[in-house]
Simulated assay, not measured.
Amino acid sequence: MEAFLVSTGVVALAEIGDKTQLLAFMLSARYRKPWPIIVGILAATLVNHGLAGMLAEWITEQFDPQAIAWVLAASFLLMAGWVLVPDKLEAAEEPRWRRIGVLGTTFVTFFLAEMGDKTQFATIAMVAQYQHFGAVVLGSTLGMMIANVPAVLLGDRLAGRLPVRAVRLVAALIFLGLAGFAAVAALGIAL
């Protein structure tokens, strides 16, 4: 249960102001069809974070637990800094695939926007740390939905009202705490 709750909270906080949340705002304003957008976000996140979780499981089978613990500590420390950097949605990321409809456009753009994103890396790190693929992938997906569904449903009206700086700071502190736990685990393995 801890893996599910932590991954939900971390991803939901990390997603505030992220480029995929900006993408959710943009799709909502452009298409004004919230349900296909929400389903597209859900499907893209499950596939993307599922692949990230599978990569994490493979990594944990291939490498020494102490080395993984130190890499996790470093990864969470880097995530703490990364989450403080605001994302911007580049014009090139704007969907242009009108033939695949709102659902298809949302799926493709969200899947691609999540590739190499901080929430994807967070999913990899949490699966490696908790060793619970299903709980982390479901939790990180729920976190994405918690952050993005309101963006879809409220569109432009919500954009300027979130205390993004405070949310980023809380997310950074959580990642710092996870880095500390991973470092303590690495030291425990070494003893």
Rank of each mutant, 00 (worst) to 15 (best):
residue 35 W to N: 02
residue 132 H to P: 05
residue 48 N to V: 02
residue 143 G to R: 14
residue 134 G to E: 15
residue 137 V to M: 13
residue 109 T to P: 01
residue 71 V to N: 04
residue 48 N to L: 08
residue 67 A to Q: 07
residue 168 R to S: 14
residue 55 L to S: 13
residue 130 Y to A: 14
residue 24 A to W: 00
residue 88 K to D: 08
residue 36 P to A: 02
residue 157 R to V: 12
residue 157 R to F: 11
residue 74 A to D: 08
residue 165 R to W: 13
residue 15 E to C: 10
residue 61 E to N: 11
residue 84 L to P: 04
residue 35 W to M: 07
residue 38 I to K: 04
residue 147 A to V: 15
residue 141 T to H: 14
residue 35 W to L: 14
residue 172 A to S: 15
residue 57 E to T: 05
residue 111 F to I: 08
residue 72 L to C: 02
residue 23 L to N: 03
residue 120 Q to G: 12
residue 174 I to F: 15
residue 147 A to F: 10
residue 91 A to T: 06
residue 136 V to W: 04
residue 17 G to M: 10
residue 159 A to C: 01
residue 93 E to C: 04
residue 128 A to E: 01
residue 126 M to T: 12
residue 44 A to P: 01
residue 122 A to W: 05
residue 176 L to I: 10
residue 165 R to G: 07
residue 37 I to V: 12
residue 177 G to D: 03
residue 36 P to Y: 00
residue 29 A to V: 08
residue 170 V to E: 06
residue 73 A to Q: 01
residue 113 A to R: 00
residue 81 G to W: 15
residue 79 M to Q: 15
residue 160 G to F: 10
residue 171 A to K: 11
residue 48 N to I: 00
residue 44 A to M: 06
residue 139 G to A: 07
residue 69 A to C: 03
residue 83 V to I: 08
residue 167 V to S: 03
residue 163 P to W: 11
residue 64 D to W: 06
residue 137 V to G: 14
residue 22 L to M: 07
residue 26 M to G: 01
residue 186 A to D: 12
residue 177 G to I: 07
residue 54 M to D: 10
residue 169 L to P: 04
residue 19 K to N: 05
residue 46 L to A: 01
residue 140 S to T: 14
residue 157 R to Q: 13
residue 95 P to L: 09
residue 135 A to E: 06
residue 106 T to I: 08
residue 146 I to A: 07
residue 147 A to H: 14
residue 186 A to Y: 05
residue 131 Q to E: 12
residue 99 R to H: 14
residue 41 I to S: 01
residue 91 A to P: 00
residue 168 R to T: 13
residue 62 Q to R: 08
residue 80 A to I: 08
residue 50 G to K: 05
residue 172 A to Y: 12
residue 130 Y to S: 12
residue 160 G to C: 09
